[in-house]
Design a protein around this nucleic acid. Structure first.
Lengths: 367, 367
DNA sequence: ATGAAAGCGCTAACAT
DNA sequence: ATGTTAGCGCTTTCAT
């Protein structure tokens, strides 16, 4: 193997040209336009480069000149490292990476730590465009992205940003379908456990005002879909307790479930607005000796692999495709000016965690 | 929200300076050294910037000037997108991302698709250093990384590259511990299922020559550790069948297991050099009505979360810490010239998939 | 087929 | 506290 100490750039295109007694153009052409010079001359250049340890044109200088960075930036919610623990984000990343590979484009993960609230990193990113994955409407990093004169595509949220492409799913319709499913099974007294609705930490009941004012449209929409479904069955939304959790982890799901069950022990079903939370709910139920689905039905949203393994009733959404489409939208945009909006399909996945209410005629009135 | 059509850079530092009738330095200082100019002047500059839609200094131009890209490049085996499906790689990424966040550095995923074998992407990457995750010794992309005059840290493999930092685990010792564990349980007739040993697709038996010539030191070392352990028990390595799989998936693990069991139905234990393969082995065993561990013991290596859930006997290695350390090595290197080599600890995790051989005195001789 | 000239947009000495 | 001067390393017309 090779093995230089990797110090400082030992040669430049200019020094190489000088050494060889040719012009910079010629050296540049040797790398970028092999057809613009004779084969022997090109070989001479490349040989000299090898000898002098010239690693080829400096990418930054080239980018400045060509106005192409050859990379797209990715802005994620939360800390960057969180993305690798969230199955949804991971799936999205996989799809996006696929698109980047195909285009030979780099993928720059913009460092967003909770501590540093500076948006500096966004302004520092040498990229040709941005993909934004599911951030709050008022996320300062996102606002910084909008300042940069670069094409941008948003996945999921925020929605309705002028001049910006978006790919997502119909969260409201998806959740409505799930809600109807529960209604059909006879459930009328349900609880809802949702993800964070605001930037400030809040764990506990979320009233309707809070729901409505949420800066996360995905959560707003999912709640609205559920409301729609139960309204159809004559159940007022104000009668359905909604609990919120700031963290998106199974632990948070468990804690939220505990809180819900203590406050509302009479619910027959617990709907979680994400599978992660639902997985936590299943754990908490087991912990408490509550049988699912005999004593309590549990449903999620997302369709992550673990949901599948556990037989969780959920709504599946195509994470990988969202990533692929986001990449495609960014990388294959011609000189389109009009923003595109892509809505991918979701699918109700009935599992084994929701049961039909038969005996307890109390809440069942279908006969 | 904002919402400009995001076209071309509308203004530059120079045009802003001209507009304001100040020097470029002053504008530059307004962004980079607020203490170098009066507050009112700075505000005037920033206000004009807002008015003209100047998004702040161009990151590429700044990088060229400062010789800092503010990002580290990451080179992964396989396709970039594969990394997001491999739990080990994901854990590593999480740790690395953590380190990057902390340093406010971007993380550029270098696009490496199987199709494009061009190493172009490596030369195009505007980064301050590279992290290389577990690639083959003769990987052309890796060779390209070595050409770039940048600090580089390798995780796992290849080993022994001059002038390059490395972080990894003692794969040989880890596997030796696992081997001894199996020996103590009485296993003498074992089969081994390992990951790819070369760049060419090969699925099936791997003879000793092939093992020895493998361009993947991690696999070489793990096999050697197993050999050591069984040699201590008087079992010749040549008596232990080693099967190789090119793909690293549970399906490949299942297929390899099938092949192994057909060729060597008499083994009492199957050692896989990765948990992914072992998970596949468990599936295949179930498929065939072979009880684990009653009829067959199965062991893995890595300690991925799923192994934990399944109670797989394995050797756990600290993926996240490897990522963190790799980042630290790259980002916090002073002006050190001597390469550092970090070896993190592994831990034997006895699960429920390996049993002690009692009855079948045939292979047991401990009393 | 090769070269000369003109920047890409910015920062960092070094003045003043 | 602000301005002047020199590039960072490269690509790209446009000549020859």
């Amino acid at each position: 193997m090779t093995g230089s100490p990797h110090v400082r750039r030992p040669a430049t295109l200019a020094s190489l040209a000088a050494e060889l007694g040719v012009s910079r153009t010629t050296v540049s052409n040797a790398y970028n336009r092999p057809d613009q010079l004779s084969a022997p001359l090109r070989e001479r250049v490349l040989e000299a480069a090898r000898r002098l340890g010239y690693p080829g044109p400096d990418p930054v200088a080239r980018s400045l000149r060509t106005r192409r960075a050859g990379a797209v930036g990715l802005l994620l919610t939360e800390a960057l490292s969180y993305a690798f623990r969230d199955p949804g984000a991971t799936g999205f990343l996989e799809g996006l990476a696929l698109a980047c590979e195909k285009a030979g484009t780099g993928l720059l993960l913009v460092p967003v730590s909770p501590e540093h609230s500076e948006v500096d990193a966004v302004y520092q990113a040498g990229v040709d465009g941005f993909v934004v994955y599911s951030v709050s409407e008022d996320d300062p990093h996102f606002q910084a992205v909008l300042q940069r004169p670069l094409p941008t595509v948003v996945c999921d949220q925020p929605t309705g940003i002028a001049g910006v492409d978006r790919v997502g799913v119909d969260d409201r319709a998806g959740m409505q379908t799930l809600g109807r499913h529960l209604v059909e099974l006879g459930h009328r007294r349900v609880g809802v456990l949702c993800m964070r609705l605001g930037g400030q930490r809040h764990d506990g009941p979320a009233d309707e005002l809070r729901q409505k004012n949420s800066s996360y449209s995905v959560q707003r929409e999912r709640l609205a879909g559920l409301r729609d479904a139960f309204a159809e069955a004559g159940v007022a939304w104000s009668d359905i307790p909604v609990f919120e959790r700031f963290e998106h982890t199974t632990d948070a799901g468990a804690a939220g479930t505990a809180q819900m069950l203590e406050a509302h022990p009479d619910i027959t079903a617990l709907v979680c607005t994400s599978d992660i939370l639902a997985v936590g709910a299943l754990g908490e139920a087991r912990e408490r000796g509550i049988r699912v689905p005999e004593d309590l039905s549990v449903a999620g949203f997302d369709g992550i692999p673990e949901a599948d393994r556990l037989g969780l009733t959920t709504v599946r959404q195509p994470f990988r495709e969202k990533g692929r489409e986001a990449g495609r939208l960014l990388l294959e945009r011609g000189d389109r000016n009009t923003p595109e909006h892509l809505t991918l399909p979701t699918e109700l996945v009935p599992g084994t965690t929701c049961r039909e209410l038969r005996q307890s005629g109390e809440f069942f009135s279908g006969w």
